[in-house]
Write a protein that binds this DNA or RNA. Structure first.
Lengths: 155, 155
DNA sequence: CGAGATCGTCCGCTTCAGCGGACAACCGGG
DNA sequence: CCCGGTTGTCCGCTGAAGCGGACGATCTCG
């Protein structure tokens, strides 16, 4: 049986990039940029929590990736980014649609529709979906982004 | 000295409460509420990832708290809440007020419907609402708690 | 030139997130 | 009554998160 077959994602490697990117951003001058040891020390001084230099290196080189809450919080606090910065990419699409959803739900009627649609059979839902797509065309609304090309996420 | 001993984590104890709250909200009927074993099974079916019943219990009783990314993601996905729900109390409160909605949105097609409904004109929305109410009758679904004959004027 | 500091890298260890299995207590059906 | 299933609870284990310490290489100071 295929239980957790998609345990590994290609976006995992992004964490290492993000950390390196944050370091490079925080210390633009490559000559004076501190190493992982100095960095770990600064993290401890700044945030009060500690992350070892070894582990920093493992994260920056992609050796480890499944952070715990405390580590994530410490990193986010030190680099001055929201925690979602590190979570973001892995579920970018999902979060994206969530945000879009939150905006959509500001309309009271849209909320009512969502509530009413809940529990209906798949066929009925499909019918509603088809109808809505038609209505969107008729009312000349832009199509929803199914899969949009994400240009240049810095490579 | 271990200066990383900062106990600045008020949300730690809250995690157990949040999980219990989510379970209680998802299954309001205490009699038919599944136990941790059944819950774990449902999580695996719904999200594709697995969380053991033992661990669920440990989380719900506050035995463990420092989740990893994967676990956090699985929980958030299953309960239909953003991950920040577990990290941020403000988000939790905000989400709680809309939990009924969040529950409805666990159906991917319902979410799609909500997204497609956004931006449509009032008349079209009314048509959709009427259609949905009819469909609910046809499919013998119980009426919504706040359902009105003519929605819209009530905020 | 060498002393010392810092660099990236790696090995081995400890700790704990997370799981499997077992247990007694309960509930429903025969 | 007993059986089978589910409940909450717990113990012990595996594996990975995370750390400490060491290594050679580089750079600067004197």
């Amino acid at each position: 049986m295929d239980l957790g077959q998609r345990a590994h994602r290609p976006a995992e490697g992004q964490l290492a990039r993000k950390i390196n990117h944050l370091i490079a951003t925080l210390y633009p001058d490559e000559r004076t940029r501190p190493g992982f040891a100095k960095l770990a020390q600064k993290i401890r001084e700044t945030t009060g929590s500690a992350i070892s230099s070894t582990y920093l290196w493992e994260l920056a080189t992609g050796k480890k990736h499944n952070l715990t809450q405390s580590t994530l919080t410490t990193l986010a606090e030190f680099f001055g980014v929201p925690r979602e910065y590190f979570l973001n990419d892995e579920v970018a699409a999902r979060v994206d649609s969530q945000l879009e959803l939150a905006l959509a739900l500001r309309n009271q009627k849209v909320r009512s529709i969502a509530l009413r649609a809940e529990g209906l059979s798949d066929e009925t839902l499909d019918s509603i979906l088809t109808m809505l797509s038609q209505a969107r065309k008729i009312e000349k609304l832009p199509p929803l982004e199914g899969e949009r090309e994400r240009p240049g996420s810095d490579g």
